[in-house]
């Protein structure tokens, strides 16, 4: 049976992880590759590396990191953060990245999704969306959630799928950081609407939250960061918990 995926997300700056990590003894706990390998051994199904470096050297450092991850990791990984052109993506593919995620650049120029899907295949293109509920509807936000738009999230997801996105990473800003659980209704709506897989992100605080996002929320995968990094929820325990709830887990 196809299993639900558990995906730790690592924030990277200048090739190193930003948030402190203390769930496991590592030679260099700030090293993204070491950490990725530790997660893979714990049973993570995929990894996302989000680069928040804000320098002109960015593309070079991200490609170098992607290469080092690809050389050392035997599970799929996505790299994202500030990717805005076919050239950026070609370099990452050439470095061995399995998937790239795009966000702001895709909203500014939706043709980018079409071009990337055509050039590299849909399976390579993850559309990341940061969204907030304004009391009436879910709207898309850009630049790491700092810039609001008038774009309706569901409309945008539909368009992205039509343009060739292979997967959606959907982050609810209302839930992110709260540890009160994922956005169940939004995720379920997106997952029912779309033919492509939906990764839910934002709000994970307990193991029960993961069970809910996979059942009620109909997510194909769930992403979290700090609860994994700080060892609040060890991945092996989480997977056993979900298996005991009869959720398909590797």
């Amino acid at each position: 049976m196809l299993t639900k995926r558990i995906i730790p997300c690592l924030d990277i700056k200048d090739g190193r992880t930003v948030k402190g990590v203390n769930f496991v003894n590592l030679r260099d706990a700030g090293d993204a590759v070491e950490l990725g390998k530790a997660y893979a051994e714990q049973g993570a199904d995929e990894l996302v590396f989000l680069d928040i470096t804000a320098t002109v050297e960015k593309r070079k450092t991200l490609a170098a990191l992607a290469k080092r991850i690809a050389q050392n990791l035997n599970i799929p990984f996505t790299v994202g953060g500030g990717i805005s052109s076919i050239d950026d993506v070609a370099v990452l593919l050439d470095s061995g990245a399995d998937k790239i995620s795009i966000n702001t650049a895709a909203v500014k120029r939706p043709e980018l999704i079409t071009e990337l899907a055509k050039n590299f295949g849909s399976q390579f293109v993850v559309l990341a969306v940061d969204t907030r509920f304004d009391g009436m509807e879910w709207k898309v936000y850009l630049n790491g959630g700092r810039t609001p738009t008038s774009l309706n999230t569901i409309d945008w997801l539909k368009e992205a799928q039509e343009r060739g996105a292979g997967e959606v990473l959907l982050t609810s800003m209302n839930h992110d950081g709260t540890k009160n659980g994922f956005a169940l209704q939004l995720t379920a709506k997106a997952s029912e609407l779309l033919k492509i897989p939906v990764i839910a992100s934002g709000g994970a605080g307990t193991m029960q939250h993961f069970a809910e996002i996979f059942t009620e929320g109909k997510a194909d995968a769930a992403l979290a960061a700090s609860i994994f990094h700080f060892g609040e929820i060890p991945i092996p325990e989480l997977k056993t918990f979900l298996k005991n709830k009869n959720i398909a887990i590797r």
Binding site: M1, K4, G166, P197, D220
Partner: peptide
């Protein structure tokens, strides 16, 4: 169901030296 078939799934009826040491139902 979702298309593509994306993620970890199990393989069965393994019939080749290609799968030596690989258990039935491996992901």
């Amino acid at each position: 169901m979702k298309i593509p078939h994306m993620g970890w799934n199990q393989i069965f009826n393994l019939k080749s030296p290609l799968f030596e040491g690989v258990e039935e139902g491996s992901f």
